[in-house]
Amino acid sequence: MDININTPLTEDITKKLHAGDFVFITGTIYTARDAAHKRMYEAIKNGENLPVDMENNIIYYMGPSPAREGRVIGSAGPTTASRMDKYAPQLLDMGLKGMIGKGKRSKEVIDAIKRNNAVYFASIGGAGALLSKSIKKSTVIAYDDLGTEAIRKLEVENFPAIVVIDCDGNNLYERN
Protein backbone atom coordinates (compact mmCIF):
# COMPACT_ATOMS: atom_id res chain seq x y z
CA MET A 1 0.00 0.00 0.00
CA ASP A 2 1.26 3.53 -0.79
CA ILE A 3 0.92 5.95 2.14
CA ASN A 4 1.80 9.63 2.42
CA ILE A 5 3.28 10.66 5.75
CA ASN A 6 3.90 14.11 7.18
CA THR A 7 6.31 14.70 10.04
CA PRO A 8 6.29 14.78 13.05
CA LEU A 9 5.90 11.01 13.12
CA THR A 10 3.35 10.53 15.89
CA GLU A 11 2.08 7.24 17.31
CA ASP A 12 -1.21 7.81 15.50
CA ILE A 13 0.75 7.41 12.28
CA THR A 14 3.16 4.63 13.24
CA LYS A 15 0.40 2.39 14.60
CA LYS A 16 -1.25 2.36 11.17
CA LEU A 17 1.93 1.35 9.29
CA HIS A 18 2.60 -2.27 8.35
CA ALA A 19 5.70 -4.06 7.14
CA GLY A 20 5.61 -3.92 3.34
CA ASP A 21 3.90 -0.52 3.04
CA PHE A 22 5.49 1.97 0.65
CA VAL A 23 5.57 5.43 2.22
CA PHE A 24 6.36 8.92 0.94
CA ILE A 25 7.64 11.17 3.72
CA THR A 26 7.19 14.94 3.67
CA GLY A 27 8.55 17.30 6.32
CA THR A 28 11.66 17.45 8.49
CA ILE A 29 14.02 14.54 9.11
CA TYR A 30 17.54 14.45 10.60
CA THR A 31 20.66 12.63 9.44
CA ALA A 32 23.07 10.84 11.75
CA ARG A 33 25.41 7.92 11.18
CA ASP A 34 28.25 6.21 13.05
CA ALA A 35 30.28 9.11 14.44
CA ALA A 36 27.25 11.31 15.27
CA HIS A 37 25.60 8.43 17.12
CA LYS A 38 28.76 7.82 19.11
CA ARG A 39 28.85 11.49 20.07
CA MET A 40 25.16 11.59 21.04
CA TYR A 41 25.67 8.43 23.12
CA GLU A 42 28.53 10.11 24.99
CA ALA A 43 26.49 13.31 25.44
CA ILE A 44 23.68 11.31 27.07
CA LYS A 45 26.20 9.54 29.30
CA ASN A 46 27.55 12.93 30.43
CA GLY A 47 24.07 14.26 31.13
CA GLU A 48 24.22 16.81 28.28
CA ASN A 49 21.37 17.81 25.98
CA LEU A 50 21.24 16.30 22.49
CA PRO A 51 21.41 18.63 19.47
CA VAL A 52 18.13 17.13 18.23
CA ASP A 53 14.99 16.49 20.26
CA MET A 54 14.15 12.83 19.65
CA GLU A 55 10.40 13.16 20.36
CA ASN A 56 8.40 12.03 17.28
CA ASN A 57 11.36 12.55 15.00
CA ILE A 58 12.96 10.46 12.25
CA ILE A 59 16.70 9.80 11.89
CA TYR A 60 18.03 8.98 8.42
CA TYR A 61 21.24 6.94 8.51
CA MET A 62 22.99 8.82 5.74
CA GLY A 63 26.20 10.71 4.97
CA PRO A 64 25.87 12.56 1.65
CA SER A 65 28.47 13.30 -1.00
CA PRO A 66 29.21 17.06 -1.30
CA ALA A 67 26.72 19.27 -3.15
CA ARG A 68 27.84 20.89 -6.40
CA GLU A 69 27.41 24.69 -6.60
CA GLY A 70 23.74 25.68 -6.57
CA ARG A 71 22.58 22.24 -5.48
CA VAL A 72 20.96 21.25 -2.17
CA ILE A 73 22.92 18.06 -1.56
CA GLY A 74 24.96 15.41 -3.37
CA SER A 75 24.17 11.71 -3.56
CA ALA A 76 22.10 10.80 -0.50
CA GLY A 77 21.21 7.13 -0.05
CA PRO A 78 20.98 5.08 3.16
CA THR A 79 23.86 3.39 4.98
CA THR A 80 23.74 0.02 6.77
CA ALA A 81 21.55 0.41 9.86
CA SER A 82 23.02 -2.40 11.97
CA ARG A 83 26.07 -0.29 12.83
CA MET A 84 23.72 1.99 14.78
CA ASP A 85 22.13 -0.92 16.69
CA LYS A 86 24.26 -0.26 19.77
CA TYR A 87 22.84 3.27 20.07
CA ALA A 88 19.29 3.02 18.66
CA PRO A 89 17.37 1.51 21.63
CA GLN A 90 18.31 4.41 23.91
CA LEU A 91 17.23 6.99 21.31
CA LEU A 92 13.96 5.13 20.77
CA ASP A 93 13.33 5.21 24.51
CA MET A 94 13.86 8.98 24.35
CA GLY A 95 11.01 9.34 21.85
CA LEU A 96 12.60 8.68 18.44
CA LYS A 97 9.81 7.27 16.28
CA GLY A 98 11.42 6.46 12.95
CA MET A 99 14.72 5.31 11.51
CA ILE A 100 15.57 5.13 7.80
CA GLY A 101 18.44 2.91 6.70
CA LYS A 102 19.08 -0.39 4.99
CA GLY A 103 19.66 -3.93 6.20
CA LYS A 104 18.89 -6.03 9.24
CA ARG A 105 18.40 -4.82 12.86
CA SER A 106 19.25 -6.54 16.15
CA LYS A 107 16.74 -8.11 18.53
CA GLU A 108 17.41 -5.26 21.00
CA VAL A 109 16.42 -2.68 18.39
CA ILE A 110 13.30 -4.61 17.36
CA ASP A 111 12.26 -4.89 21.03
CA ALA A 112 12.75 -1.13 21.43
CA ILE A 113 10.71 -0.48 18.26
CA LYS A 114 7.82 -2.52 19.69
CA ARG A 115 8.14 -0.99 23.17
CA ASN A 116 7.93 2.55 21.76
CA ASN A 117 5.52 2.07 18.84
CA ALA A 118 8.25 3.15 16.46
CA VAL A 119 9.06 2.03 12.92
CA TYR A 120 12.12 1.09 10.85
CA PHE A 121 12.03 2.12 7.21
CA ALA A 122 14.40 1.11 4.43
CA SER A 123 15.17 3.33 1.51
CA ILE A 124 16.89 1.78 -1.49
CA GLY A 125 20.60 1.32 -0.95
CA GLY A 126 22.73 2.55 -3.84
CA ALA A 127 20.03 4.87 -5.20
CA GLY A 128 21.60 8.04 -3.80
CA ALA A 129 21.19 10.15 -6.94
CA LEU A 130 17.48 9.33 -7.18
CA LEU A 131 16.84 9.87 -3.45
CA SER A 132 18.61 13.24 -3.50
CA LYS A 133 15.79 14.56 -5.68
CA SER A 134 13.35 14.35 -2.72
CA ILE A 135 15.58 16.49 -0.49
CA LYS A 136 14.65 20.17 -0.83
CA LYS A 137 16.80 21.71 1.89
CA SER A 138 19.81 20.60 3.93
CA THR A 139 21.35 22.40 6.90
CA VAL A 140 24.15 21.17 9.15
CA ILE A 141 22.88 21.69 12.71
CA ALA A 142 25.51 19.91 14.81
CA TYR A 143 28.94 18.27 14.78
CA ASP A 144 30.04 20.21 11.68
CA ASP A 145 33.61 18.94 12.19
CA LEU A 146 32.46 15.42 11.30
CA GLY A 147 32.08 16.41 7.63
CA THR A 148 29.74 13.98 5.88
CA GLU A 149 28.89 12.50 9.29
CA ALA A 150 27.58 15.80 10.74
CA ILE A 151 23.94 15.99 11.84
CA ARG A 152 21.84 17.57 9.08
CA LYS A 153 18.29 18.84 9.19
CA LEU A 154 16.64 17.86 5.92
CA GLU A 155 13.40 19.14 4.44
CA VAL A 156 12.05 16.32 2.30
CA GLU A 157 9.13 16.03 -0.10
CA ASN A 158 7.64 12.63 -0.90
CA PHE A 159 10.83 10.87 0.19
CA PRO A 160 10.28 7.20 -0.74
CA ALA A 161 10.80 4.46 1.85
CA ILE A 162 9.47 1.02 2.69
CA VAL A 163 8.24 -0.10 6.13
CA VAL A 164 10.54 -3.00 7.03
CA ILE A 165 9.84 -3.39 10.76
CA ASP A 166 6.49 -2.11 12.06
CA CYS A 167 5.50 -1.36 15.64
CA ASP A 168 4.22 -4.92 16.11
CA GLY A 169 7.64 -6.28 15.18
CA ASN A 170 6.63 -7.64 11.76
CA ASN A 171 9.79 -7.78 9.66
CA LEU A 172 9.78 -7.62 5.85
CA TYR A 173 13.29 -9.15 5.70
CA GLU A 174 12.02 -12.31 7.48
CA ARG A 175 9.74 -13.67 4.80
CA ASN A 176 10.49 -17.40 4.98
Binding site: S75, A76, G125
Partner: peptide, 15 residues
Amino acid sequence: NLQIAGEDMIPICQD
Protein backbone atom coordinates in the same frame (compact mmCIF):
# COMPACT_ATOMS: atom_id res chain seq x y z
CA ASN B 1 19.10 6.26 -10.40
CA LEU B 2 21.83 5.41 -12.94
CA GLN B 3 20.27 7.74 -15.47
CA ILE B 4 20.00 10.65 -13.02
CA ALA B 5 23.60 10.07 -11.88
CA GLY B 6 24.97 10.39 -15.41
CA GLU B 7 22.76 13.25 -16.56
CA ASP B 8 22.99 15.44 -13.46
CA MET B 9 26.51 14.40 -12.39
CA ILE B 10 25.43 13.13 -8.97
CA PRO B 11 27.42 10.08 -7.78
CA ILE B 12 25.48 6.82 -8.32
CA CYS B 13 25.89 6.10 -4.60
CA GLN B 14 26.87 8.51 -1.83
CA ASP B 15 29.44 5.96 -0.66
